[in-house]
Structures are given as C-alpha cells and as structure tokens.
Design a protein around this nucleic acid. Structure first.
Lengths: 225, 225
DNA sequence: CGGGCCCGTCAAGAACGCGTCAAGAGCCGT
DNA sequence: ACGGCTCTTGACGCGTTCTTGACGGGCCCG
C-alpha cells in the first residue's frame, strides 16, 4: 500500500484529497504546516508527498528544501499560482511534479501513481550496518559475516530491518510482529523466537551468548551494532 | 552534456525549442514523425525526449508505447489539449511529465532539467560488458559467447540492459518488470522467470548453476560481470 | 523447594517461489 | 497467404521458506 503525506492548511481540500486517495487504496497521513510536514516525512516515511505551497509557518520553497534535506521521497507540489517562475523554482528545488489549482482529482491521482512508479520506495532505505563481525547492506540485501556471504531469507531480512531501524533501542514484540507480519499479528506467537534464533545462528559469533541481537525478557528485542 | 530529442511536426516550434535548448547547453536532435522518433531513440540514445502528441504518421500514445518498448528514457509529453484524460493516459503509459500548450520555454527547460535529474542516465547506451565467457555490446546489439555470435531477441536485450545498468546490484522484480514491460506491469508474472531462463541458456557457461545472472529469491535478480 | 512464565530449540507439514517445458497467439518479412 | 521467429501464458515438479506445535531449561516468585 502506498503511503501518501498530504500537506495542506485548507481543511476542506485536505479532506477531499484524503477521501479520494483512500478510495484508491492509499494510506494517508496529513500535516497542516511545514514543520509538521518535515517531521512526518522523517517519522512516517511516506512513499510520496503532496505539498501545497503557501503554508502558514514557512515559505513553500523552504519546506521543500527541508524535506529534500531529510529524504529523497518524491514530492508533488500543489499551487494556486500560475506563474511559470514558481514552477521552475519548485522543480529546480527538487520537486518531482507540479500541479496548478484548480485541478481534477483524477489528474492528481495519476500524478501520484507516476511519482510512486518513478520513486519506488526510496526514502525507506536503511544505510548499511557495520560491526566488527558482520556487515548488513539492506539496499542490496547482502549480508557478510567474517568476509563470507551469508544468505538471509526475506522474512529474516524484514525482522532485521525492523530492529535496525532503531539500533540500540528496544523494539517491543508487538511492534516487531506488526512491522513484519502485518497489523493483525499483534498477539503472541512463536515467530519472534524462531527468527531471533535463526538470525543469531547466522550472524552472531557465539549464538548461545548473543551480543548483537539481545532479548529483553517480557518486552522485545534490541539490536546492538 | 544532456542530449535531448525533440519530436514535433511543427517546424517553427521545433526551431524555437532547439535554439532554447542549445542556448542552455544541451545537445539537440530532432524528429518530425513517430517512426523517425522511435528510430532516433534507439540510435541517438537521448537523455530525455520531448514528444508532441498529434504527429502525422502515428497516434501519440502509439509513439509513446513504441518508445517505451525500446527504451526507458524519460519522456515529456507536449499537448495542445486540456483534458485531464489525456494527461492520465499519457502518464500511465509511461510519460514522465506532461506540458500543455501554450507553455513558457523556461518552464519546459525546468522540466527537462527535472526529468534528467530524476532519470539519471537512463536512455544512454551502456558501454560493452566483457567477462571471461561472453561479451555484450548494447550499442551494436551484439552478443558473443566464447567467440561465437549469439542472437538475443529484443526482449532479452531489454531485460539484460535493465540488469546491466547496475552491475552487481540487486534489481527488484517490480523495477525490472516496469523497465522492460512498462509501468502497468508491476504485478507478478512468469515473464522474468522465462527470460532469466532464456538468458542463462544463451549466456551462462553452466545454465543450471548461474554465475552471472543470479536469483535473489523473493526480490529480484542480480547481474555479476 | 515447587510452580509458572518466558524463551530457545527442534522438526514436520504446508505454502510458496523458481526453473522448466510446451503450446498457442501475434507479428513480422517473403 | 505462408512460414518463421517472438512473445505470452498455463502447467508441473522441486527445493526452499514459513508456519505451527511440542518440549526443555532458566529465572523469578511465592
């Protein structure tokens, strides 16, 4: 499912867009000002951003600049102005597309599809994680232990990725389950025990005494780089 | 230097664009009809295409389709029509941007810059790839295995090219499908399995144990030179 | 000391993804 | 219109991965 961040200070337009996007199978998060928008890009990791210029707190181009500083997520700029100058500025600042109000919802949806198609799921990628014992490259799906390539299964990667998004921090079982197996798997199950085990065997120097993939009894797991 | 292919049957507009683009440091090649355009995409390997719909010989969407069949080069569509429907159709067919006439030259230049920035050097021909076992010359469409010429079909070339653009890197199924079969083929299908098989038979020393065209289960394929 | 809880471990069946094959449709050029 | 080449699509077998249940051990608490 595509996650779309809608940034607009007009509640009516925001509502219209949210409904239309949800109706076409997208997940929608919203922000009404620039600072919230930038924060949401960081925290929610949307697949695409629809950004209305002319926000209350920050200049539109400034918001764009900050988003670009934080992420490579595709941005579609929305503007009431007709002047080509704005378009040029926005596109050169790193916007991926530009739509002038008034616009048809269908058109916007098409542009969202196009932007997502181009952008893929960049913006979500984790940098490689390097320890003295192994190297994890999530973008390439490549794991190296003591110089040897090690095969991890898709699910193993997902578990590892969920843990590595917050290195050194506790990730609760519930969150981990949901991140890997979907929202309905909030309850207990063997999954985590099995996969923690699997990962330790493949990655830890001494699987019996884990140094990197640590259990927090009753709570969840922690990944130490 | 950016190479731009301008496809338009109006000599005046063609001339205007050529001058403007050259003035901004671009190399320009032109075509006045659809067939010439497709040919030029193949031979000149432009970095970006500006395509006016409503050409004398072929329907606009047909030209787009053929360009997409031949290359992943970014395409900016130019049209006199205002209807959103055309925009949607064009964008879904794989156009990267859509500009309605009349437009300012500055705006078009900005969109060209944006398209090139996004597209990277797609569209450029790849240099030849040489291994101890085979040689691939994409510009000439010539493959040599153990000194023997081998015929590859157009689709085989496209799959190979999509993989070889990032040698040694994982290319996800979704990206591969879209690069070769167009944006609407994001879903699963037999295509990749069949063509990976085909290519391995033709190129690999031991097709059963591929060394160059490697499967990453659940994700995609990787090409190792 | 005994019991409950939680985790690690193992193994077996099910489900899934990939490689493979082959038949039919479509698209050329002759 | 014909023949050849490609592309598309379905089917099948096999190996891998996922899921699930069972069992044992450590730890905390009463």
């Amino acid at each position: 499912m595509t996650r779309v961040l809608v940034v607009d200070d007009d509640p009516r337009l925001q509502r219209t867009l949210t409904i239309a996007l949800r109706a076409h199978g997208n997940e929608v998060v919203t922000a009404a000002d620039g600072r919230t928008a930038v924060q949401s890009v960081l925290e929610d990791a949307p697949d695409v951003v629809i950004l209305d210029l002319g926000l209350p707190d920050l200049d539109g181009t400034e918001v764009l600049r900050r988003i670009r500083a934080a992420s490579v997520v595709p941005v579609i700029v929305l503007s009431a102005r007709h002047e080509s100058d704005d378009k040029i500025e926005a596109l050169d600042l790193g916007a991926d597309d530009y739509v002038t109000k008034p616009f048809g919802v269908e058109e916007l949806l098409a542009r969202v599809r196009a932007a997502v198609r181009r952008g893929g799921d960049l913006g979500r990628h984790l940098g490689p994680i390097v320890t003295d014992h192994f190297v994890l490259d999530f973008a390439e799906r490549r794991a190296t232990v003591e110089g040897e390539d090690v095969r991890l299964t898709p699910t193993e990667w997902r578990v590892l990725e969920a843990l590595c998004r917050e290195p050194g921090h506790l990730v609760q079982q519930q969150d981990l389950l949901r991140a890997v197996w979907g929202p309905s798997y909030g309850r207990e199950s063997n999954y985590l025990r099995v996969y923690a085990n699997q990962l330790r065997r493949k990655l830890e120097p001494d699987p019996a005494n884990p140094r990197h993939l640590v259990t927090e009894p009753g709570l969840g797991y922690r990944f130490n780089p």
